[in-house]
Design a protein around this nucleic acid. Structure first.
Length: 162
DNA sequence: GCCAACGTTGGC
DNA sequence: GCCAACGTTGGC
């Protein structure tokens, strides 16, 4: 029953929650995702142990800053029920939750972050349809193929340009 | 079911 | 801070 390992990329604004925060807490529920496609990946496709690129968005140097892993099976996002949360969803109920998440566990920080600019330079190897670099793509949780994972990991420590 | 208006994401 | 691209909402 050993299912093939899957790979993902998950974005977070470091002001909000960074790889350093994840290192500190160890494991964190990936709450606040309010996009159906992203939710579906977590709810329907993620398996405990899947490897995750931890991506910092909306920051000076956007890019991959660390590795995490899926640390739980999917379950409802508590913040959707919390009227005081900015993630509260009035249309969600405990009987019929709308938003699901997984716990994400810290694996390691990268020695050198892999900036988006460097990732773009390798778009040919990664494929034009890679959701991270596809034009206008804003998905915050997206699948990474095994070969893309390898290419991206290979960029660790590569210096973009001096 | 169309689509304009609005809100959000996220790079720059 | 700007704004392009996209998703969602709601009137009709």
């Amino acid at each position: 029953m050993n299912k093939r390992m899957r790979y993902w990329l998950m974005k977070s604004e470091p002001e909000d929650f960074s790889i350093d925060d994840l290192e500190r807490v160890g494991t964190e529920p990936w709450n606040g995702v309010r996009n159906y496609q992203a939710r579906n990946f977590m709810r329907d496709s993620m398996q405990v142990g899947d490897q995750v690129f931890f991506y910092h968005s909306n920051t000076k140097v956007p890019g991959i800053y660390g590795i995490a892993q899926v640390a739980s099976t999917p379950y409802p996002d508590e913040t959707q029920f919390d009227t005081r949360s900015k993630y509260h969803d009035p249309k969600a109920s405990r009987e019929e939750p709308r938003w699901f998440l997984v716990d994400v566990g810290f694996v390691r920080k990268l020695d050198q972050p892999i900036p988006l600019s460097l990732i773009r330079e390798h778009s040919e190897q990664l494929g034009e349809d890679f959701a991270l670099i596809r034009k206008g793509a804003r998905l915050s949780v997206l699948p990474v193929t095994a070969s893309q994972w390898k290419v991206l990991l290979g960029l660790e420590g590569t210096s973009s340009n001096e």
